[in-house]
């Protein structure tokens, strides 16, 4: 009986020593798909250093060195405009929009009544699952010239307000759409973190005379600091992607000056305009900035004693 057990163990150990090729085979299709569509495309960035012509292909197109990156130093006004718009939107989205879910999570968390809380959450999560096409269409129907707001204003003898299609209001519109769509969803992760905080800490602080604000400052916020920084770093990698779908859908009426960002510039000049090489040079530049930001932010997080996305 005892020897039987020993034998089983040896068999198990032997099996572990021999690599489980079946297991690799099971996982590999997904791995190949990921490499094919997430890493293999990186090789196509070589056309940024070519005068790429689709009918010649990569093999036959001529090499031009860094000429396509001239937008970086020759003050191309289109590029500078797209870069400026992108940076403004990045700033708005990171500084203004990013903390809003945290505020909502704090509000929801302090609300009495489990069922009410759950009901509110179900409703607030919903817009996240709507595509940008749907969100843009909904905003048009609510705030457009013939939308609900203006129909109401006109019927009650007020002046109508133009919101959609106004260049000066475009960034405000984009921001409010993002807030509408993703605030609720953004609370999930914070709510999960808030529920992990030991309630006894709050009780002890209250006994010591700490008010609600003091408790939030000294207990709640420090407990979720790590998560906040982690999410921020994750955002940075894509921080120059400020919403291609959302913007390309609404670009027509407002014009390029107010609405062009790096992603739409790449699309309009590359896919539509056929200037493949320069468009991919801009794309490559954008990716490099993302990589530098993530690595830099992660280093900074380590300096401040946080975990960051990856360990040192």
């Amino acid at each position: 009986m005892a020897s039987q057990v020993v034998d089983d163990h040896t068999i198990a150990r032997r099996r572990r020593v021999r690599p489980d090729l079946l297991l690799v085979g099971i996982g590999l299709p997904g791995g190949i798909a990921l490499i094919l569509f997430q890493y293999f495309p990186l090789a196509f960035n070589v056309i940024a250093f070519q005068d790429y012509q689709p009918y010649l292909g990569i093999g036959q197109s001529s090499w031009v060195g860094f000429q396509n990156f001239s937008f970086l130093w020759d003050g191309n006004p289109q590029f500078l405009n797209a870069l400026t718009n992108t940076l403004i939107l990045t700033l708005i989205q990171t500084v203004l929009v990013f903390p809003i879910p945290l505020a909502f999570a704090l509000m929801l968390n302090s609300l009495a009544g489990e069922r009410l809380k759950r009901l509110l959450q179900s409703v607030l999560y919903l817009p996240h699952f709507m595509s940008w096409v749907i969100v843009v269409a909904l905003f048009q129907q609510m705030l457009g010239d013939a939308g609900m707001l203006n129909t109401f204003l006109i019927q009650n003898d007020f002046d109508m307000v133009q919101i959609i299609g106004v260049p000066d209001l475009f960034k405000t519109l984009l921001t409010s759409q993002i807030i509408w769509k993703d605030t609720g969803w953004g609370t999930i992760i914070f709510l999960a973190a808030l529920s992990q905080i030991d309630q006894e800490q709050y009780e002890a602080a209250a006994v010591d005379g700490a008010g609600p604000l003091r408790r939030m400052w000294s207990i709640t916020l420090p407990s979720i600091r790590g998560l906040f920084i982690l999410l921020l770093i994750l955002r940075l990698g894509n921080s120059l992607s400020v919403g291609f779908e959302q913007i390309i859908l609404q670009q027509g009426p407002v014009g390029l000056e107010a609405s062009e960002v790096l992603d739409t510039w790449v699309y309009n000049n590359g896919i539509i305009g056929g200037n493949w090489s320069m468009a991919s040079a801009v794309g490559l530049f954008k990716m490099m900035v993302g990589i530098v930001l993530v690595i830099g932010a992660n280093k900074l997080a380590h300096l401040f004693g946080e975990r960051g996305v990856y360990e040192k």
Binding site: Q38, P41, V266, G270, I271, A279, G283, M287, V309
Partner: peptide
């Protein structure tokens, strides 16, 4: 590592299109 990298970065519009 490749999976994690794909979450952090995307290869970009033009290379994706060309693939």
């Amino acid at each position: 590592l490749l999976v994690l990298g794909s979450v952090l970065f995307s290869p970009g519009l033009i290379p994706n299109y060309l693939v």
